[in-house]
Design a protein around this nucleic acid. Structure first.
Lengths: 120, 120
DNA sequence: TCGATAGTCAACCATGTGGTTTATTATTTT
DNA sequence: AAAATAATAAACCACATGGTTGACTATCGA
């Protein structure tokens, strides 16, 4: 990952740190949505929702197309890919831990097989 | 992902939204570190670094073992795996876009092959 | 043209964030 | 016992965040 991409992770992870914005992204995964449509599921003012949308836009997670008085928003996946890639570096740690657990369970299984009073 | 896991994404993504804390995690990927060791690379007070460490701890990203007056910190990968899994849902969108780009390039290449004035 | 609709802007508020400095606790070293 | 070290706690500061309400702009539809 380049330095420029890494520095843009700040606003991306910040945008993702709010459940409202994550729900909006999930909604946008189903297709384009207007600002009103994105705001509708939430019990907050349209203005508050509009701020959330601007945070997502500022992080590059969505783009908007103004059509008359409505704004169509669509998902922009590239920054999510960057975040995913950053997290991917740590995959070795959780898979290592799962491998260890797996090994432990296999060893336990083998032990039970040698004294087969009650196989699972 | 369960609802309980999803709700814990808030502090995880928030912890990741700061470059200082991301660097600390990267450092911890190399092995255990004390609070002082984690703070050393940064031009900020030990107290400020200690706050960052507490944010990471609060998100469950690190655990600490108190040994006398030193605190050994180690990486806790599980919440990173949750975040990775959450982002993984969107993988379809960036791979779709790359596939489309790929198709476009292939089509362009084919066009050039049919009128082979100057092959790339 | 006139009212309804989509959306933003601006001001305000309570709380959170990231940093500082000073003080404190607990442990290790001499 | 005294000094040095590792780390936290607390108070403070400037600024960001997430929400509100009220006013405004621009477009659509009757």
């Amino acid at each position: 990952m380049t330095e420029a991409q890494a520095s843009r992770l700040d606003p991306v992870f910040h945008a993702l740190s709010d459940a409202t914005r994550r729900r909006m992204l999930h909604d946008l995964a189903r297709g384009e949505r207007t600002v009103s449509e994105l705001a509708e599921p939430f019990s907050m003012s349209l203005q508050a929702a509009s701020k959330h949308i601007k945070v997502l836009e500022g992080a590059g997670l969505i783009r908007r197309q103004v059509l008359g008085r409505t704004h169509k928003c669509r998902l922009e996946p590239a920054p999510l890919a960057n975040a995913f890639q950053w997290l991917g570096f740590y995959e070795q740690f959780w898979t290592a831990r799962l491998d260890a657990l797996d090994a432990l369970l296999r060893a336990e299984d083998a032990r039970k097989s040698r004294s087969p009073r009650k196989r699972r």
